[in-house]
Amino acid sequence: MWPDRRIQDMLGIELPIIQAPMAGAGLADLAVAVCTAGGLGSLPCALLSPEQLRDQFGIIRQRTTRPVNVNFFCHPPPEPEAAREARWQQRLAPYYRELGLDPEIPAPPSNRAPFDDAFCTLIEELRPEVVSFHFGLPERSLLDRVAATGARILSSATTVDEARWLEDAGCHAIIAQGVEAGGHRGMFRTDDTATQIGTFALLPQVVDAVRVPVIAAGGIADGRGIAAAFMLGASAVQIGTAYLLTPEATIAEPHRRALAAGPDRATALTNVFTGRPARGIVNRIMQEIGPIAPDAPPFPLAGGALAPLRSASEPDGSEDFMPLWSGQSAGLCRAMPAGKLTRHLADEALARLTQRPKRPDRKGHGQ
């Protein structure tokens, strides 16, 4: 009954719903719940070591044999800039002193590792059905090795130019990520956030520009959004923020409270937490030094200097220095188990897609 089954047939899933891989917000439990409900569960690997990936993937395979997606960042490693990092540390110094910390202590390293030979070797061993990437694609030799496993390859595009580039590079499907989406922007052929566009403007343009199936992402959290995406040519949707209020999500309690406030809390693109534009709920640190801070070191180095502030404040329930990743659709989210949510979203969307339009009466009114 879905108007376009290309993603379902390609990936071997029952429902055209992909759980967004959100680093730090979900692991095996969330992926399994979505897989068993008929969608495509995703395991985010940006914060995992190869050993942790092996363990989490093993848990998934013990609990389901359905297709699963593993996701990696593929950003170029940044060149350290001592002067910029010192300016960033100085910018944060008042917060260190407020929390009784020494502002001169060295910032701990960030652990967001890009896809590399070690991860690729593990993919060759574990052979997941789907491998997705953020920030473009890895180098050609690694991508060819992933393709040789038979995995379907997905990646995010935030512009039509990026979508065409991904298709030419061999992606089997493209995720059209609108500016409404929570978390990191997948942009990789531009750094201009001012020209990033919304999902329902980007989606049909990407559909028209490429031959492969397109997955809509950003601001979709209920059946109305899913139905609208299909009407604009999507073959599936990728949903993130709606899954953050599920019990399977691994976010901290202050993050849950902020999400539950829905439209009472604004979101904005910010670089203060990692050095790369990402959408989150506005909190103290975003208000006071951002949301876009010119002094922030490049991704992912900015997060190191924030780590001591988070460690000192979060045990007391503070959200002041915590990234509260969220898309613009938080006000549409419902707290329910992930499997039930997946089915509910699909049922809502199908009801919209199969609803017959009302016929106008003689006076021109619908009936």
Rank of each mutant, 00 (worst) to 15 (best):
M1Q: 12
M1E: 12
W2K: 06
D4M: 11
M10C: 15
L11A: 09
L15A: 14
P16E: 04
I18V: 14
Q19Y: 06
Q19R: 03
G24E: 00
A25L: 14
A25N: 13
D29N: 08
D29Y: 01
D29E: 14
T36F: 08
T36P: 03
A37Y: 03
L43C: 02
E51P: 14
Q52I: 06
Q52E: 11
L53I: 15
Q56L: 08
I59S: 05
I60R: 00
N69D: 15
F73C: 03
C74I: 10
P77V: 10
E79S: 15
P80N: 00
R84S: 11
E85T: 04
R87G: 13
Q90L: 05
Q90H: 04
R91E: 02
L92K: 04
L92H: 03
Y95S: 01
G100L: 04
D102Q: 06
P103A: 05
E104G: 15
P109E: 00
F115I: 12
F119E: 00
E125V: 08
P128R: 01
S132T: 08
F133N: 10
F133T: 06
F133P: 06
F135I: 08
G136K: 03
E139T: 04
L143E: 02
G150V: 09
I153T: 04
I153W: 02
A157D: 07
L166C: 10
D168L: 15
A169D: 10
A169E: 11
A169R: 14
A173Q: 07
I175W: 05
I175D: 01
G178E: 04
V179S: 15
G182V: 07
R189D: 07
T190G: 13
T190C: 13
D191S: 07
D191K: 00
A194F: 13
Q196P: 04
L203S: 12
L203N: 04
Q205G: 07
V207S: 05
V210S: 10
V210R: 10
R211N: 09
R211S: 15
P213I: 01
A216W: 01
A217G: 14
G218V: 09
G223L: 02
G223A: 02
R224H: 12
G225C: 07
A228R: 03
L232Q: 14
L232D: 12
Q238H: 09
L244P: 13
L244W: 04
T246F: 04
T246P: 09
A249N: 08
T250L: 07
I251C: 10
A252V: 14
P254C: 11
P254Y: 01
H255S: 02
R256P: 03
L259Y: 00
D264F: 07
A266P: 08
T267K: 01
R276M: 13
R279W: 09
I285Q: 06
Q287F: 11
G290A: 09
P291S: 03
P291A: 06
P297K: 09
F299T: 11
F299M: 10
L301E: 14
G303R: 10
G304E: 06
L309Q: 11
A312R: 08
P315Y: 05
D316V: 05
G317C: 01
S318D: 07
D320I: 14
D320M: 09
G331P: 04
L332T: 02
L332Q: 11
A335H: 09
L341Q: 07
R343N: 02
A346C: 09
E348F: 13
A349N: 00
L350Q: 12
Q355Y: 02
Q355E: 12
P357W: 08
R359C: 06
D361T: 09
R362S: 08
G364D: 03
H365N: 08
G366H: 04
G366I: 00
Q367C: 14
